[in-house]
Design a protein around this nucleic acid. Sequence first.
DNA 1: GAAATGACAGAGT
DNA 2: GACTCTGCCATTT
Length: 108
Amino acid sequence: MAGFVARVLQVVSRIPPGKVATYGDVARLAGRPRAARAVGTIMSRASRPGLPYHRVVAAAGRLGGYGGSEAIKAGLLRAEGVAVVGRRIRDFDRRRWPPRRARGTTRR
DNA sequence: GAAATGACAGAGT
DNA sequence: GACTCTGCCATTT
């Protein structure tokens, strides 16, 4: 088994409820910043029960896919407190994980 | 070992 | 904001 896969699974398992991470972020945390596509491939193939795959979404707040039913994915996310509007996540920027360094901690 | 496939990202239109 | 085209990577056949 490739270490990359294990790393990806590990990252996914660390995503807290109510938060979402993009494939790109997961790939980056796994050590391959440009392997977003590979991450998707791994998930669809490497079925690993117990891991919140539904918390991994596409970029720009889009849901992405989920075994062919993104509606289910949207439902799961919404159940965890993530507002999903249509095929998009509301306030995606705030729901995203990991939390990006605040540009000005001194929020005015 | 090589070619095709896919739960993507980013920039451009 | 939505659609299109190109680039990137690991897995599968």
